[in-house]
Design a protein around this nucleic acid. Structure first.
Lengths: 143, 143
DNA sequence: AATAATTTTTAGTTATATCTAACTTTTTAC
DNA sequence: GTAAAAAGTTAGATATAACTAAAAATTATT
């Protein structure tokens, strides 16, 4: 229960999420790889990791990979789930994958629970959008 | 043509948009009202206005209301149009008005042109979402 | 095993964006 | 028309989040 209710900054959420993704992809989250993935320099990563340590979300032996605590794992998974939901949502709207990924990455930090919940509803398979047929009927209607 | 291509920060976009809204609503945008509307203190507004002046987006006689330059008018209208589009979009998804307004206010600064364009498409009246009938048929089907 | 290369960390700088406190100008009220 | 109140400004502090430069530790090469 510790400091789980300390609202993370957007930046720290990004770092936490990236640690999670790198650990899933390569088993280990190195400072160098986090920096490359987020397009920042290594000292920026070092400072962020220090913050996340203070918040009890990650641990790190000096000069080695970053690990997630239980609370960190949960927080990272939350962010990642929002990312996945939003990316899928944008793709459903017709946005290209690269842009959907980029925009989801911004949206994941700012949307309220209510909006996220409505987007979840929208993504349920029973919600079907009718488009083309109403715009440009391709076949002449019978009479 | 001046410095129109200086990408504004999210914060400066908010101030510019608020100047525009207050001028439309009350004819004048006072420091005090901008501060109240954005929930910041007056010195924060003063600094922001100084920045916007440097960028050639607003003018201000000392100790009086803030005016928009032509470039400022255009930039503010852009932000406001995004706001209106996004708020309507969220409401269409079922989000309450207050939350739609709040979330639109964050989204308006971060979404790519492509995503905004797809959201515009979605909002065209010919796009109709079919929901309830597929979830819970209220009438027994014939046969 | 010594040296070179890489990785990580530390220290210090810069920019943005907020704040409080204090000062100035303008407006309002008597 | 002066005194009080309100509005605006200036100055200085704090926090976040990035950077460069340089030091320290680890890993790789020969």
């Amino acid at each position: 229960m510790e400091n789980e209710h300390t609202k993370l900054t957007q930046s720290l959420e990004d770092y936490l999420e990236m640690v999670h993704m790198l650990r899933m992809a390569h088993g280990i989250a190195r400072v160098k790889d986090i920096a490359a993935a987020l397009s920042v320099k290594m000292p920026s990563v070092a400072k962020a990791i220090l913050e996340l340590k203070k918040l009890g979300l990650v641990t790190q032996e000096p000069y080695s990979g970053v690990e997630l605590t239980e609370a960190g794992e949960k927080a990272a998974a939350d962010v990642l789930n929002r990312h996945i939901l939003l990316k899928g949502f944008l793709i459903r709207l017709g946005v290209s994958e690269a842009i959907a990924d980029k925009d989801a990455c911004c949206m994941e930090h700012i949307l309220s629970a209510e909006t996220l919940s409505k987007i979840e509803d929208f993504m349920k398979p029973s919600n079907i959008t009718v488009t083309a047929s109403l715009k440009k009927p391709k076949v002449a209607r019978s009479k």
